[in-house]
Nucleic acid binder design. Sequence first.
DNA 1: CCGTATTGATAATTCGCATTATCAGCGGCT
DNA 2: AGCCGCTGATAATGCGAATTATCAATACGG
Lengths: 344, 344
Amino acid sequence: MTAKPGKVTQREIARIAGVSQTTVSMVLNDRDGSNIRIPDATRERVRRAIEQSTYVADPAARRLAGLDNKILGVFTYESALTPESMDFYGPLLNGIERAAESLGCDLLFFTSSPVEEGRRRLFHRNTRLRLADGCVLLGQQMDGEDLERLVAEDFPFVAVGRRDETEAPVPYVGIDYGALTETLLGRAAELGHERVLYIHRNRNSPTARDRLAAIERAGHSPAVTLAVVGDDLAGLPRLIGETGATAVFAEDAFLVEDAALVLGDAGADAVSLAALAEVRGHRIGGRNLTGFHTPRQQIAAEALALLQQLISTAPDERGGIEIQRLLQGEVAFGETLTARGGAR
Amino acid sequence: MTAKPGKVTQREIARIAGVSQTTVSMVLNDRDGSNIRIPDATRERVRRAIEQSTYVADPAARRLAGLDNKILGVFTYESALTPESMDFYGPLLNGIERAAESLGCDLLFFTSSPVEEGRRRLFHRNTRLRLADGCVLLGQQMDGEDLERLVAEDFPFVAVGRRDETEAPVPYVGIDYGALTETLLGRAAELGHERVLYIHRNRNSPTARDRLAAIERAGHSPAVTLAVVGDDLAGLPRLIGETGATAVFAEDAFLVEDAALVLGDAGADAVSLAALAEVRGHRIGGRNLTGFHTPRQQIAAEALALLQQLISTAPDERGGIEIQRLLQGEVAFGETLTARGGAR
DNA sequence: CCGTATTGATAATTCGCATTATCAGCGGCT
DNA sequence: AGCCGCTGATAATGCGAATTATCAATACGG
């Protein structure tokens, strides 16, 4: 397919310059040493031949010869570019693009990964993964097998978001949701809240567990009641009544929005609300939602920096690298977390 | 770099199954013919060896051997994933992602292209372009040299947006802004507007020229005065007064917004406003802006379909393909184009 | 019983580039 | 003359998969 009649190879350059293909390669890669010596005159002759032509190195051949490619893979466990997911992925992708640009790398999106048993799989018969020097993984939920295999094969990769679903340590860059959760609980205590209701969907993700662990750690001030909720939040008012909670925290901003809808204007005014997640762009009844601000572009930049580090380090020397990095986010004090009983 | 100790090759599979590498390749590609015959027993043996292992074909080697890669390049003349440009690129990228997914292709973003003389260049010493089977080009303004060279090298590519900056015909998928412009002018005439002021930035792009050509074609009903404006729109009220225009059309929605700002509430109420471009998400003083709706996801889908067609057709047989395609958008009748002198 | 298909499979080659090993030519030294 | 060492360059090889040419073994036909 796609015949390339105009393709210029090193051999062609060599013919023009009257040297061997080896010499052309040496000149292109600035090789020089005890065994390889090329006088400037020859160098110049070869260079000129290259300038005259439209020579471009074939990346496939370079790769096959064992060189780096300057290609970074990007794998998302959900579609990355839909309008809905742009909210979440947008800043990450933007950060990745910028970092890649400054590293001089191209980005290979594995959009072709087939869906097997309801989830996208990174590994399949025809994966182009190996074309990349390394890979960034994105997504709320990742596949443990994929991760295991990447580790086992010493393939350089970095997950965005904390991971703990595997035996082997997985390189990641994430947000310290535990610390943020503690801070926000402390703030709630200061504001006089003694009973808080935490609603979540019982997701089996590391960050979900981190939040729960932090709540655990916080002890009894304030006392937090955990409640798993489904799509139907109808039972929420009853739950609030039973627990005597003066504040409702939820796993993410969307869940807060759903809760606010169920509680109605009056109810939403009566209790404080907060999300233990990014709240940028979310407002509840005209008020800025209290929650976290997470530096997503920074995460992306850090992830690519780590990836680059892994790529340029031999597998057996990666021991010294800090491969699990948590960045500190900040608590966004909106207007939905107010003093207990206080009018806003 | 990046030693791949766990890398399984066809040779390894061959060793396990007790056959030659050739046979493995034949089985994998389902080759069969007068010269190549492999009994089912052997086939099965090889298949099982592959199943047992973690064999994945090396894409670089396949590519070098002259096969298709299922990789489509994406080149944007501006950064594609910034929050600002998401407005424009988002729907296109989304469409591209979905089309690629259904075609089973991965997407290679050429984020590494260096900026030379103020513009990004597709071709450079280390371009990974050849790794892709074909390429989609995005951007308001493209580089004529890039296009010429792509054509000259018979490299399959498709530009998004109409192109006319080259001698050779460039494959593209775009919007028929001419037709839309005519329709909107007609509508203005129906509403009683006899004099329209068209403000633009004198951009040297095909679509800009299309709009001007359509205005030209429309003749004298309504009479359109053309005005090139810079960043400063201060002279706009005077222009309106001099020309007696009852409606102001602008090149794009942003320009309309700027104009509305200059005219102020009173002025914006007095004249009708419209953009000869996509107006989704743009509102002027609480009213939906009149302009066009362009099916951007559809453009992307069509572009990838065309690209796929070019890829799978030998260069000398591409004659029969309709390589320049204009899609019809639709006029979005907002509330900023009203009957002449009519209250809204 | 000898030539000739047919079957099943493999050795050899190619793709473009990087690298290693090798070599021809020359000057200096003993 | 014979040996050494240096310079400048090239032949040979490998990377992994696809393809082409080739071959050994068996079956067949007369």
